[in-house]
Design a protein around this nucleic acid. Sequence first.
DNA 1: TGAAATGTTGGGGCG
DNA 2: ACGCCCCAACATTTC
Length: 471
Amino acid sequence: MTTAIVWFRRDLRLEDNPALHAAWRAHARIVCVYLHAPDEEAPWQPGAASNWWLHHSLQALDADLRRRGACLFVARGPTAAALERLIAASGARAVYWNTLHEPALMARDAALRRVLRARAIEVHNFNANLLAEPSDLQSGQGGPYRVFTPFWRRLRANLQPRPPLPAPRRIVAPALPGNVALRDLGLLPSVRWDRGFAAVWQPGEAGAHAALQRFRDRALGDYRVDRDRPDRDGTSALSPHLHFGEIGPRQIVWRLLSDVRDDVHERNTVEAYLRELGWREFSHHLLHHFPHLPERNLDRRFDGFAWANEDALALRRWQLGETGIPIVDAGMRQLWASGWMHNRVRMLVASFLTKNLRQHWRHGARWFWDTLVDADLANNSQGWQWTAGCGVDAAPYFRIFNPVTQGERFDPAGAYVRRWVPELAKVPAAAIHRPWEFAGAHRLAYPAPMVDLRATRVAALAAYRHLPRSG
DNA sequence: TGAAATGTTGGGGCG
DNA sequence: ACGCCCCAACATTTC
């Protein structure tokens, strides 16, 4: 009768969870544990929206475990001490977990592994969150990939769909003292700004599978067009589920490829979506090989870029969605109200912040970090560097979005703007993205644009010209 | 996973 | 019938 500890982190699922599956096959009794130690993730401890998600996802995992005869044991960190206590209390001789690929956490976990093995405790680690280990992929030149397309071509060619590992049918768990009640972790906000979240999201493994099912049945068919349309429900909305590991990319790949019809359109559509999973992998690849990605420009020429002085008032208007640019404000308010923003609109608000307002991208990255339910260090850092133009294989800095043009192209009737900026609900479609040209504009309870789009664009290009030619 | 300026082409109006 | 101009439509270039 051996006992093992399965340490859940961001793999909050029972199906296709390799650490859980391996422990369940090898041991009679399993302690399923979550250790709360946000300080160990500093300076990138989860933000308020992530904590909201985490609370509900842990609750769902606990319920799923109880249906199988176990429960989720919750303890506070530091993780090393908590694991020691658990080992002593349970008599476990083995600890299982799935890798977190963020550099700081990989270092912490490597130290834990050494300590445990020195005490003759087995440690078994698995990859549950990525299609490929970032350290396994090398470009033709031998170093890490810096360009997405060859990276993805390589990863895609080696991608073998395989059926998911089954969830354990029944788990025998020893009773242990000291379980911390989930609500005592303080993950839920004291000021209840989160009321809108529950209407939009279903955290947990069941919610993740429901989202995938909805996407496959209803949205996938028009994905290549609708994924750019914030006025339609055309994206997968799987990002927070993926971040917390309620579903893994391998499960998604299996689901989409195992029963795709032999039809050119459908195959191309699936490939277009898999490519987005590829960007997620590419972000983790870059974070692994360039661990300072969250704080430092990958393109070091931008270290000397003439960002505008930090402007707290301008940042505040951007955060609150009071810039006077309809689609920017719609996006920022969607983020605040629901913890999520449509991908195209993320690019637009990021372009507006870093180019029209010329505020440093890290201000945007920080705000997203605290407000997104899908906040993910690799994706968020990579995404901001991509839009700001200082990443590798990034949008060039001179590619400055015009939020009016983009709004008219991707939200033509203005349904997205009307939904999130109700002050503009009665503006006719022809003027919805440029209400300052609308005859009744002075009567609207909506601000004039905080900056002139044309002038700030010209100023951003002028600043860009002063970058060194290469470096 | 741009936008705007600039260049080119071709049809139609017109003297 | 012809040259000329205008301008929309599209292509190319530049940032």
